[in-house]
């Protein structure tokens, strides 16, 4: 892939402005973002974002509505391709692959980068069929293994015990929190490296929220997780790293503890202490 070669050199030479890789220097980076800009038509939604998202950590994106955090998330798996006049430039790499390269197969990208939406959106099919849908598309199993894969995914999403007796019932019969964990299991089933979560708990009640948050902390051992959230307590509870977006710019990024107790930036401090937003 000749296109990606020049990009490889960039991160090393470019100034490492506010990056999230403020933890141990040996930290492995899964998603590398450098001077990333995004537009909707003429509207410049994201300005020069530079952010490294480390492997097997939870990174939360916070900021007031319209700050661009969801736009950022939706570029990582190119869901913004669905928006007619959305475009972006700069560097966004998943491992060594250039995500923004038009030639890069979005099907493969989305297999590697799973997504969980704000509102649980299980297919109007059985629980089993919901999980089996992805693996069947990607032929990611030997026939006898599909049952095992479904069980494994449901176990990983901490919902197996609740649904094992009704795998062939409609997924729409589950509660909101169960549906959301089912959606997480569905994303896991295709074997992604990264899970993107767009306000995964904002449509859930407090108990379901607690169960999904516990799951996110659990999944960090296996996946690189990026969570967009409006809820700062949630960011503090689940994430290792936090990135604060404001008006399309990345204001500050770093370990979550530091961000909430000792923010370097005044805007960040105002936001996390609830003075605006």
């Amino acid at each position: 892939m000749p296109d990606t070669q020049p990009n490889l050199a960039k991160p090393a030479t470019a100034p490492t402005a506010p990056t999230a890789a403020a933890t141990a220097p040996t930290e492995q980076i899964t998603i590398r973002v450098q001077d990333f800009n995004a537009w909707y038509g003429a509207y410049h939604a994201l300005h020069n974002i530079t952010l490294n998202i480390p492997s097997q950590r939870v990174t939360s994106l916070i900021g007031p509505s319209g700050c661009g955090k969801s736009t950022f998330l939706r570029w990582i798996n190119r869901m913004n391709d669905l928006v007619p006049n959305a475009r972006a430039d700069g560097v966004m790499q998943l491992d060594q692959d250039d995500v923004l390269d038009r030639a890069f197969d979005v099907v493969e990208l989305r297999r590697r980068v799973g997504m969980v939406f704000q509102k649980p959106n299980p297919f109007p099919k059985s629980i089993y069929e919901n999980i089996a849908f992805g693996p069947r598309l990607h032929k990611r199993f030997h026939h006898s293994d599909l049952d095992a894969l479904v069980e494994q995914s449901l176990r990983a999403a901490a919902i197996w015990d609740e649904v094992k007796d009704r795998l062939h019932n409609s997924a729409l019969g589950l509660s909101g929190g169960q549906q959301q964990r089912l959606c997480i299991a569905r994303a896991i089933a295709v074997g992604p490296e990264v899970l993107l979560m767009d306000e995964p708990c904002s449509a859930l009640d407090p108990r379901s929220t607690a169960s999904v948050e516990a799951l996110i902390r659990e999944l960090r051992q296996t996946f690189t997780i990026v969570v967009v959230t409006h809820n700062m307590q949630q960011a503090a509870r689940v994430s290792d790293l936090t990135a604060f977006f404001f008006e399309g710019k990345l204001v500050e990024a770093g370990p979550t503890d530091g961000m909430f107790t000792n923010p370097k930036n005044k805007q960040t401090e105002d936001y996390v202490t609830g003075r605006f937003g």
Binding site: L82, R110, F117, N121, F123, P124, G134, L137, R186
Partner: peptide, 18 residues
Amino acid sequence: VPSSLRQASLAIGATPWQ
């Protein structure tokens, strides 16, 4: 058909035809 279902399918790596 709610567009959230289409999004869910596309996000899992299904092609528009699938």
